[in-house]
């Protein structure tokens, strides 16, 4: 038996829970796919890696698929403390961080230089931006050849200055030099700086493009006003232009710090951490002890990764905190 329901009372059924909370739920539904992948590829591996750093493991499972890892607690970290290669890598990481920062002011000056209206400026800009577009691996290879004391630019210039062309015992052309050509990538003192110089090339281009976009947004009226007040040259740059470029500077510093800490490709291509480990940085050392041909120490590699993670976390937290402060201030 059905009652005729009066149109006034209970007109519509209670809206479902989903409908009532639509606004709160919708963002999460859209976020779910990204969160799942972020968890699988980023968050879970971080914890796996932290956990693995407490084991000694050569990366093998036995025939039944059980891991052959043994628990060693913090022994891997104790080993790190006594490992000269680890300290070399850490020192190189700091050298990278400090010297890589040069990319920020250099990028700014190139950007200022290119921020003019001249015929063909787009072409020059794209040429300056070019090194950032090509792969780091290619940059590493090119600089590796560039530094080569036999056939590279360095070697050729050296031969022109210090060497004599002679013929050897078989009558083939050879060179005798009053002093041997500098072998930058094989010198434990200079190799790291050689690689950093190579790394700066694309990094400067990156900072430059950040500043070029930033310069587009510099308020012309403020420049004009400053000019009327008699500001010019360095003062104009420092007190009027640079403060307006603050967002660009912030991003440039962030990408440069992170770029310096994850410098891996160039080292892998140019020296493989050599000669005898003197150009290693933490990211490459971690690869070397865990995954490379002579590695097979996954626990130890994970402890290196953990230290690197800690350093990165420090910088990233600071950047996030800064961004949060800025956003609060902006409201």
């Amino acid at each position: 038996m059905t009652h005729a329901v009066s149109p006034q009372s209970d007109a519509r059924p209670q809206p479902s829970w989903m409908k009532r909370n639509k606004l709160a739920i919708a963002p999460w539904i859209f976020l779910i796919p990204a969160l799942i992948f972020f968890a699988i590829y980023v968050v879970i591996p971080i914890f796996e890696s932290l956990w693995l750093s407490l084991y000694e493991w050569n990366g093998l499972y036995d025939a039944e698929g059980n891991s052959t890892a043994t628990w060693v607690g913090f022994a891997n970290y104790a080993k790190l403390w006594d490992d000269p290669n680890f300290w070399t890598s850490l020192r190189n990481n700091i050298a990278w961080l400090v010297l890589y920062m040069l990319a920020v002011p250099l990028g700014l000056f190139i950007a200022l230089f290119l921020n003019q209206t001249v015929t063909g400026m787009r072409f020059y800009k794209s040429m300056f931006f070019f090194p950032f577009v090509i792969s780091q691996v290619v940059v590493g290879l090119i600089f590796g050849w560039f530094y080569n004391p036999d056939f590279g630019v360095v070697g050729t210039v050296w031969k022109a200055v210090f060497c004599e062309e002679t013929t050897n015992i078989l009558g083939n052309v050879t060179f005798t030099c009053s002093r041997p050509a500098p072998d930058i990538l094989s010198s434990p003192e200079w190799a790291t700086y050689g690689i950093i110089a190579a790394g700066l090339w694309p990094q400067i281009a990156y900072c430059m493009i950040l500043y070029l976009t930033g310069l587009n947004n510099v308020a012309a009226d403020q420049i004009e006003a400053a000019r009327l007040d008699g500001a010019k040259g360095w003062k104009m740059l420092w007190y009027v232009v640079v403060p307006q470029l603050k967002p660009a500077t912030f991003i440039a510093v962030v990408v440069t710090v992170i770029g310096a800490l994850r410098s891996f490709d160039m080292i892998a291509i140019m020296t493989q951490g050599g000669p005898f480990g003197s150009t290693n940085v933490l990211s490459h050392y971690m690869f070397e002890v865990a995954i490379s041909e002579y590695g097979e120490r996954y626990g130890y590699g994970s402890s290196v990764a953990t230290v690197l993670f800690g350093i990165m976390l420090f910088f990233i937290s600071y950047f996030l905190w800064r961004m949060y402060q800025d956003e609060k201030g902006g409201r």
Binding site: N148, D150, S186
Partner: peptide
């Protein structure tokens, strides 16, 4: 400069005499 050469690179001075 042997530290910047692979074993293949090192053939060059050998082949040149």
């Amino acid at each position: 400069n042997h530290a910047s050469m692979s074993w293949q690179d090192a053939i060059a001075p050998f082949a040149n005499g």
